[in-house]
Design a binder for these strands. Structure first.
Length: 255
DNA sequence: AAAAGAGCCAACCGCGATAAG
DNA sequence: GCTTATCGCGGTTGGCTCTTT
């Protein structure tokens, strides 16, 4: 049998790591490599659990970690990957060199999530949920009309989140053919900008492709090469793949 | 200037998968 | 084949800092 876990033994430190502890761990791993996490604390002279050491190394001490603010393209990528993968932070982080799953998760929760909510996108499913239906129809109704531009001139559109927005994607579907037939993402973005009263095109900065399309049945191919190593649910990550093999965005919000 | 609230992030917790005995 | 430890992951929390009142 294996030796018992010492993670919960008394005498192990918890909480923030001191510089001395960091140094001990770094020195040890530089000299000996990672090896077995359980044995590292003792060998390195640390009063920590192996689990804590592993976390500290992966999230903070690893030499290849990129620290500092996320670049715009990193943020865009996170949003797109989240739309495809959901909260599979390790998979998302795997596509962002130098970023950890914890960092990506924190950035999502503290920055991106808020940002999406602000512009009326549900961060859980990446669906637009707060476009003013009437305003959208107004702005789509006549090309001669100044579209949403007039809306913004009315001053603050406040943040009336009770406004009923209607936008569709292939999962939602819609009974409104006028909406379905509308496919000008620029106007949608203008609506969003006006509705949310945010600066010029945060939506553009997010690099979102806000197309509205007729619901359609996608042709799916299960892609198995991103199967999570351990989590059983789901056992496969399904991605939509076009016939040419190129990934098709799961949601129409992201091109 | 002080208090309260919000935001941020490092670290912990609990769970499932896997490996080892 | 069963039991138990370890690993890795996502969710959550605690405490620090910054901003607002």
């Amino acid at each position: 049998m294996r030796k018992s876990c010492n993670c919960d033994k008394e005498g192990t430190n918890k909480g923030a790591w001191s510089k001395q502890e960091d140094q001990k761990l770094v020195d040890y791993i530089r000299t000996n490599g990672k090896g077995c996490w359980r044995s590292i604390p003792k060998a390195a002279g640390l009063h920590r659990g192996g689990k804590s050491c592993r976390l500290r190394w992966i999230n903070y001490l690893r030499p290849d970690i990129k620290r500092g603010d996320f670049a715009q393209d990193e943020e865009d990528l996170i949003i797109k990957l989240h739309a495809l993968l959901g909260n599979r932070w390790s998979l998302i982080a795997g596509r962002l060199p130098g970023r950890t799953d914890n960092e990506v998760k924190n950035y999502w929760n503290s920055h991106i999530r808020r940002k999406l909510i602000k512009i009326g996108i549900d961060p859980n499913n990446h669906k637009l949920k707060q476009i003013n239906h009437h305003r959208l129809l107004q702005s789509t109704g006549s090309p001669a009309s100044p579209a949403a531009g007039t809306a913004s001139s009315s001053g603050s559109m406040n943040n009336d989140h009770n406004k009923q927005y209607l936008i569709t994607n292939k999962n939602l579907g819609s009974n409104d053919d006028r909406i379905n037939n509308y496919n000008n993402s620029d106007t949608v973005i203008r609506c969003l900008e006006n509705e949310t009263n945010i600066g010029l095109s945060t939506t553009r900065q997010l690099n979102l492709d806000l197309n509205i399309a007729i619901p359609s049945t996608p042709r799916l191919t299960l892609v198995d090469n991103e199967k999570p190593k351990q989590n059983s649910e789901p056992t496969k990550i399904s991605r939509e793949v076009a016939m040419d093999g190129e990934p098709v965005p799961t949601l129409l919000l992201f091109g």
